[in-house]
Amino acid sequence: MTQKYENPVVELLFQLADDDYLFSYRGSEWLGLAPHIEEDVAFSSITQDTMGHATVYYRLLEGLGLGVADTLAHMRPATERKNSILVERPNGEGVYMETPRYDWAYAVARSYIYTTAKKIKIDSLKSSSDQSLAEAAVKISMELYYHLLHWKTWFVQLFNSTEDARNRMTKALEKVIADCGDLFSYGDAATEITNASLIESEQVLLNRWTEYVKPVFETIKVAVPTFGKPERNGRNGEHTKELQDAINTMSEVYRTDLTAAW
């Protein structure tokens, strides 16, 4: 199991940073594979923004003396990662360098759920007791606006499209929801994080998320899903094997020359 940091800001920053780092990595694997060229442009733009958000958090950690941002991003093994299980899951069968058989319905469902959850967290972080984190949240929020618009459009359109599309989306959403147990969790650091008023409690955010997505779920005539207890809690460093594979691929270039300026 992973180390728990004394300072709750550090705990929370690692959770936020690792979430966006992995989500962005999974997005980048779609490059050149999206259903059409406009989507390829849009998805990679969102992915780039998201890596920017991860960078913001890693730099805040660097400012707190935790090490160089790039090293924090690329060199920490899976056992030290605090991202949720949802973002580490592969995009589907195969690898992007060979014969990827990725599932677009899964990409849309995961992106919509992840992005709406991120929106709820970011809004709460705007009133964080940590001034730097609150300022970063204001910045990220403005970019997130476009991501939300994008994924909501896909999510609703595919659900309300053909029977085949609806079936695939239903299956994909089930798969996504099964991994959401730790999405709003702060792991073992929950009490310290909320006591320090860094962000509101897990339950408050979860309730707010449910309210937030309700109109969209009404449009697609699906009940708002509820998240179960996590089988593994990524916030405590409990992960799947796929996480280490993802980190290895993502950091491969960085590890070839640790002294280079990228």
Partner: peptide, 29 residues
């Protein structure tokens, strides 16, 4: 396309002069 070649730009099309063009995305608090 709301998303253009860089993060800050969108892609539009002019029906009058039939040119594709880009716009800086509005960013507001």
């Amino acid at each position: 396309n709301l998303f253009g070649p860089t993060a800050c730009r969108s892609i539009l099309y002019c029906k009058s002069c039939k040119n594709p063009f880009e716009a800086m995305k509005p960013i507001s608090t």
